[in-house]
Design a binder for these strands. Structure first.
Lengths: 348, 348
DNA sequence: GAAAGTCACGAAAACGTTTGCGTGTTAAAA
DNA sequence: TTTTAACACGCAAACGTTTTCGTGACTTTC
């Protein structure tokens, strides 16, 4: 087992100094051609590679970015990661991940683990618990120490940093507008409680679309689910509530759901009740998921371009990391990613 | 903006030496109670945290493990990551990810990026391209440098290292046995070409189950797809081939597919042909995916316990990292994760 | 033949830690 | 009073780099 070789060992073998070796490997003109050749040959033979940790310490730069997300087994987040990784790698950075599992304390612990020199900056999406507790001190402390942060998707205005968000409002509005254009008169909304900003914005988009078409929103057509529950587990509860809604309002001819699973459940319930999608009832979901594409009928959705979000977030972060000195006052930007309505078979 | 504080700065402020500060923070009995109190109070006030990079350099230990996978937007792999992250975090490690995107060269580059001191060990699953080229030099070189590797799922016997694999053979065998027990006589197999070990093993399990039940395998009932194609994109081609198979062999009363999407496509084609699942034709897939659970009818699958695989891999790796000195000769183990048949509505 | 310049290399500091050992001061034992 | 021991702390090396500066040997110039 040949351990990794260091400059010191090369120097000793070749009977020169460490600095000579270092310079020779960089083709410094301080070093004679002879020595350069000798050193490089030896280095190649032993497959010398500079130790990253030593470089990081010396340069005060790790070339690594940290990404903290609530959950990785989730199509949206894994696509974001892919986008981040893509850009990061192209620009010479590694990506280190932390999962908050939607927990405030895990988020804090994870950030502290990484903030002590391991990375040059953060890309993160807040956990639901953090959103609920509205305790943002850890973000501010991290930024105060000079560590840049880019937030995506789940953001709050209280935190001043770069952000990448989806145009939830218009995405929802356009989806509902589509349903209205398709002659739907009674459009139900299946959404989450309001503390998650994205849920709130999508709800507002829904209301706006109705208003612009002079349709009076009916509170009874809006189903607000408690998504602190792991909805994968609480499918029956979800379906039960949807069924009640459909039973009580036979006039419903369309559903807009703020995520994929809600939409899928709506379709399932509809089918069970003998309703045909899209003829009796049209459905649109919100997300990039794999379910929409492969369900029957396939689901029309509002695509969030998750991978693009990751790419933009990474670019934003690395730009900030590499901008040597801040030009006067800190300047933050918010990138808005446009959504796209992907029409499939659950609408006409 | 208060930059991170260091021992040196604390030492200067408090007019003591760096070593005194370091020892005081560790409650060394070399240091007087007075000084300890003073130093700790100051450190707390300024929120001192030791710099990870400096520690890594000193200890020659990063407390970080690298995971390299072919693709992250994939339910199986993201579940594995979750398992790795869970165990790693509990044992005080961070996780850094690299995506090979099924490419040999990206796999090599990624490994080289991380192998130069950034991590203490690897967890990885081979890219398809590497499997095809059968070029494993980068694994062996990495291990020669004393960096432990744990492989999972896609492994080859040529590489000597710890492994975590799924019992593909028995998983497939049991699934097919289930179909046979359900009175199926003509069971089709939809699989991949043989170079991916897992596909080969599943095929063998299928054959073994037939043999044990004195059923003669028919080559015409076996459909081998070329999965170098991104099958998400080539859905139509996939469905076309399945349709041909079904048309040519109306006697088919069951399908065993080596992944989720093949199974789903089979169901879709069957439905299109007016066949009822599971009454006319029963279907079993292989994987942990989210699609199986939410399809209609929901799909009976062979669960691989992806998260458990990640957990076991992480434990194996960290055990090896922390085992100070190898007991004489290197000893490698292979952990086999048992599969589980999750029965849903696509079988009787 | 002396002054100036060029060349090729080495010493040392720095990044932020930890830790073995040396040392000056004071208190206790002889 | 002298010797010894305990105490509280600082020095310096080490991890692996990079880079500035210094220096000895040789070559060129007048």
């Amino acid at each position: 087992m040949r351990k990794k070789i260091t400059l010191k060992q090369i120097a000793r073998e070749l009977d020169v100094s460490i600095s000579t070796v270092s310079k020779a490997l960089k083709n410094s003109k301080e070093i004679s051609a002879d020595t350069i050749q000798k050193v490089q040959a030896f280095a190649k033979l032993y497959n010398y590679r500079p130790n990253n940790i030593a470089l990081s310490l010396k340069n005060k730069k790790t070339n690594t970015i940290g990404i903290i997300i609530p959950e990785i087994v989730h199509h949206f987040f894994s696509k974001v990661i892919r986008g981040v990784e893509l850009v990061a790698n192209n620009r010479g950075y590694n990506v280190i991940i932390g999962l908050s599992n939607e927990s405030f304390s895990k988020e804090v612990i994870n950030m502290e683990m990484l903030a002590n020199g391991s990375i040059d900056g953060f890309i993160l999406s807040m956990s639901k618990e953090t959103l609920q507790q509205q305790d943002y001190h850890h973000y501010n402390e991290t930024m105060n120490q000079g560590m840049p942060i880019v937030m995506f998707d789940r953001v709050v205005s209280e935190i001043k940093c770069d952000k990448v968000i989806v145009d939830d409002f218009n995405g929802a509005k356009n989806a509902v507008q589509k349903l209205i254009s398709n002659k739907c008169k009674h459009i139900a909304l299946i959404t989450t409680r309001d503390y998650v900003s994205v849920g709130r914005l999508r709800t507002q988009g829904y209301l706006q679309a109705l208003e612009e078409n002079k349709i009076t929103p009916q509170a009874e057509l809006i189903l607000k689910m408690d998504d602190t529950l792991d909805y994968e587990v609480h499918l029956e509860k979800l379906e039960g509530e949807i069924e009640q809604l459909f039973m009580a309002h036979k006039e419903i001819d369309a559903v807009f759901a703020v995520n994929e699973l809600y939409a899928l459940s709506a379709m399932k319930v509809a089918r069970r009740m003998g309703l045909n999608v899209p003829n009796d009832i049209q459905v649109i979901g919100f997300t990039d998921g794999v379910l929409s594409k492969h369900s029957t009928p396939s689901l029309t959705t509002v695509s969030q371009h998750a991978q693009l979000m990751g790419e933009r977030a990474a670019d934003l972060l690395i730009d900030k990391i590499e901008k040597e000195f801040e030009t006067e006052e800190e300047q933050f930007q918010t990138v808005v990613i446009n959504t796209e309505l992907v029409e499939r078979d659950s609408t006409k």
